[in-house]
Amino acid sequence: MPRKTTKKLIDKNGIRADGRKLDELRPIKIEAGVIRNADGSAYIEQGKNKILVGVYGPKEVHPKHLTLLDRALLRCRYHMAPFSVDERKRPAPSRREQELSKVITWAIEPSIFLEHFPRTCIDVFIEVLQANGGTRCAGITAASVALADAGIPMRDLVAACAAGKVEGHLVLDLMDVEDKMGEADLPLALMPNLNAITLLQMDGGLTTDEFEQVVNLALTGCKQIHTLQKEALKARYIAVKKAVEKQ
């Protein structure tokens, strides 16, 4: 692919390739309770990302030897559909997907009262239907909504968002090209009410000053996403209430 001839990612007015400002999120749509057969579920669209999450449990652990006697076992599976990217992705879990599954598990684990349900497991399936950069963050965001939808007691919701550096500018919520062509990418997950960070990764190089700014930028993104998560969870019940009051 001839990338040299592509236009600049950020123009002189500070507008990005998809028309966003530097500190602007992609348009986000979250919906809770979309899968009937799952105990809890959520669907998120963040720009061109489309991700479906299903939660099952708490239930007995299979295989049995994985049982933890003092708390529940949380298992997340991040998986990209073969049609989620430009070139067909082989459906078997890749090295990258296995790593992301682990990282997402660790990002969500602190938010759940796992010690309330010893000897059980909670399965979270994150299915990326369409990917355009920042899927691990969108996956965490949606997974947290799905867990709340399943009625699993949580300390807080987890909202995740990336920030980074592209062509010398510090930007929020990187999309695929910005991630690949840019200088740095920093995904971050936050429990907003407790003000606790549960995931912090970085790819690329930043000075300490820049690092601090990027982290703050990502934090503001997470807080914006958090309000959307809350709205998504409440939406169904508010709709029923409104329909009832109309009668």
């Binding site: 709340a148 300390r155 407790l194 809350k230 969870l233 409440k234």
Partner: peptide, 8 residues
């Protein structure tokens, strides 16, 4: 009132 996990 309707609340979500983590609400103070």
């Amino acid at each position: 009132q309707l609340v979500t996990p983590g609400d103070l």
